[in-house]
């Protein structure tokens, strides 16, 4: 169905042909219906993709910039001797128990695989930016707590609930960064990693949500948009929270279960907020968050779980 020129049509609409070649292809287009159709389809494809708008509330952007400007400064010298080397063998148990749970889910879902699952099964080798930290950051132990709010992390007091024990991993010297840490192969043991990841990501998302919620100013002009946004995030987290809690209960992981347990009513409250909640309602939720020191607990637990993956 394609003629020999079709590939060049693609380059032509990208302006990537030499002038002489472009003229040749354009002449061909006058006589070849197939290529003319391909061109039209490629261009319509282009307009579909380029008109895609990100779901990006203005508040998110504002907040991100504030965090980066603050965070960049506070963090600069600490990139190596990082935050907290939280580690707790209890999580390993939680992770193991999660495997059964995930297996169940996969069993349930295996009838309807999404095509993208195939697409990502073999990620290409990860190129490092010439300048530095690249994604290895993510999987290497020293640099990658939950994405947001790195600087706050440093200030957050460590609750005694999670005694931090150092893993037998050498700390990198400042400046040494990630150079000596080889790119991990795609782990064969991804199952337990996934179990931990699921909980870690959940904590991370919840932490981000609660931090954001703490910062919502009801007298802002865009307060309603912000509340709607946080509400949606909370709604997205509730079911996951319930499932993870049930699973942690079943596994006998008291610590994780109780953290999820105190998180649940807060998520529910936020998820049920009206567009324009009154001060009092919001204050009650915030106070509960503060009283339980939940943001710090989430942060430490998600960090510890993520660390345990390495």
């Amino acid at each position: 169905m394609n003629c020999g020129f079709t590939e060049k049509i693609s380059s032509l609409i990208d302006g990537e042909l030499w002038p002489a070649e472009a003229r040749e292809v354009e002449r061909h287009l006058l006589t070849c219906v197939r290529c003319a159709e391909a061109r039209a389809d490629f261009l319509s494809l282009r307009s579909q993709i380029s008109s895609f708008e990100a779901s990006l509330p203005g508040v998110v952007q504002k907040r991100a910039l504030a965090k980066i400007l603050a965070g960049g400064r506070g963090e600069r010298k600490t990139s190596g001797a990082g935050v907290s080397w939280g580690w707790n063998w209890g999580y390993a148990a939680a992770a193991l128990a999660s495997i059964a749970f995930i297996g169940l889910i996969i069993g349930l879902m295996s009838f309807s695989q999404r095509p993208d699952q195939v697409a990502f099964n073999a990620p290409p080798s990860v190129p490092s930016p010439t300048v530095e930290p690249s994604p290895e950051t993510k999987s290497s132990p020293e640099a990658e707590p939950p994405k947001a709010d790195k600087n706050e992390k440093e200030d957050t007091p460590k609750p005694k609930a999670t005694p931090a024990r150092r893993p037998p991993v050498r700390e990198p010297k400042p400046g040494e960064q990630f150079a000596s840490i080889p790119e991990p192969a795609i782990p064969e043991t991804i199952r337990s990693a996934d179990a931990q990841t699921m909980t870690a990501l959940h904590f991370e998302k919840a932490e981000n949500l609660l931090r954001a919620f703490r910062n919502v100013r009801l007298d802002d002009t865009d307060a309603a948009a912000e509340v709607r946004y946080e509400r949606k995030r909370a709604q997205q987290l509730i079911y996951q929270n319930m499932m993870l809690r049930r699973e942690a209960d079943a596994a006998g992981d008291v610590q994780i279960a109780s953290l999820l347990d105190s998180l649940e009513p807060i998520l529910l409250d936020i998820a049920n907020l009206p567009d324009r909640p009154d001060e009092a309602t919001v204050r009650v939720i915030r106070e509960r968050v503060e009283r339980k020191n939940i943001v710090a607990l989430l942060q430490i637990n998600s960090t510890a779980l993520a660390r345990a993956l390495d």
């Binding site: 889910i105 879902m109 990860v126 993510k138 991804i190 996934d194 990841t197 699921m198």
Partner: peptide, 14 residues
């Protein structure tokens, strides 16, 4: 890419 690697398919299934 790291995110895909970290969370892999099972997370999306979840």
């Amino acid at each position: 890419i790291n995110e895909f690697r970290k969370t892999n398919t099972r997370y999306r299934l979840f």
